[in-house]
Design a protein around this nucleic acid. Sequence first.
DNA 1: TTTATTTAGGATAAATTTGTCCGAAATAAG
DNA 2: CTTATTTCGGACAAATTTATCCTAAATAAA
Lengths: 144, 144
Amino acid sequence: MFSKACEYGIKATIYIAVKSMHKERVSLKEIAEEVNSPVAFTAKILQSLAKSGIIDSHKGPTGGFQIEESRIDTIKLHDIVHAIDGDNIFNGCGLGLKQCDARQPCPVHHKFVVVRDNLKIMLQNTSLYELATGLDIGLTHLKR
Amino acid sequence: MFSKACEYGIKATIYIAVKSMHKERVSLKEIAEEVNSPVAFTAKILQSLAKSGIIDSHKGPTGGFQIEESRIDTIKLHDIVHAIDGDNIFNGCGLGLKQCDARQPCPVHHKFVVVRDNLKIMLQNTSLYELATGLDIGLTHLKR
DNA sequence: TTTATTTAGGATAAATTTGTCCGAAATAAG
DNA sequence: CTTATTTCGGACAAATTTATCCTAAATAAA
Ligand code: FES
Ligand code: FES
């Protein structure tokens, strides 16, 4: 469904959000540990999320990653997925046709768009805030 | 969403079904042309679909692929996807946790399972027959 | 200013998926 | 029986994704 990079990116962002809600910056190393992801690969993903403006990064001692508190509830899961995996998952044809178009539909088009839109809406309606809160109060988990 | 192999496999199966409904066997070469897929790669996929019992294959002159007519409406999209991509898409965690379990859920679990189940139900409810019919009467297309 | 710490970024490498090649096996037809 | 045709199956290759390594740049603190 999502790429590995996206899975790591989502988990990392949620973890950063939890820490940010407690006014704490968090290092790459800590993130990778908590998220159970390869450190260097996670670094790349965080780098790109920073460039996308989803998270903030700071170099040097006391440096690390954080998210401006006021933005945590405006950031949606959709934004993270879009930043990492692009929009093929939201607009692409389920059977890989170059263009998904209802006027020249593939055999699964009509049924597939329902599912695809369902996913899109879910991602658009899910805020980083609610995901971070669930993790913070111990209702959900990042490792297993 | 689906692997390339699965996309090709679905399109190929639908095409074989259309031909089978007209009592015709169809060769690998023709399938690959109609589906716009690499010939040798398509061969591997068809081979595995034959092993899974979803399609029938016959060697030699006048050989090719076909699907027993009576089975066309009992085969569901779910069967094809399951045969090629396995069941991770139906049961796997959206964030890649080793085990998706409501008792130890990841942050997106509750929202993700709704979408995932939605997809599963759609695939289970979609018969090869209806997909093949749509293609046969020119309502849908395999290339673009 | 020096040092230690942390992210940035480029080069590589490993793993997986996608795709190719070719000879073997089956089989229909002359 | 021989030949032509078609799928089978294994080995190999290319492309993409995932992952690692190392140096540079920034920066906080001594
Ligand atoms: S054309 Fe295939 S999903 Fe729309
Ligand atoms: S635990 Fe992640 S989707 Fe169920």
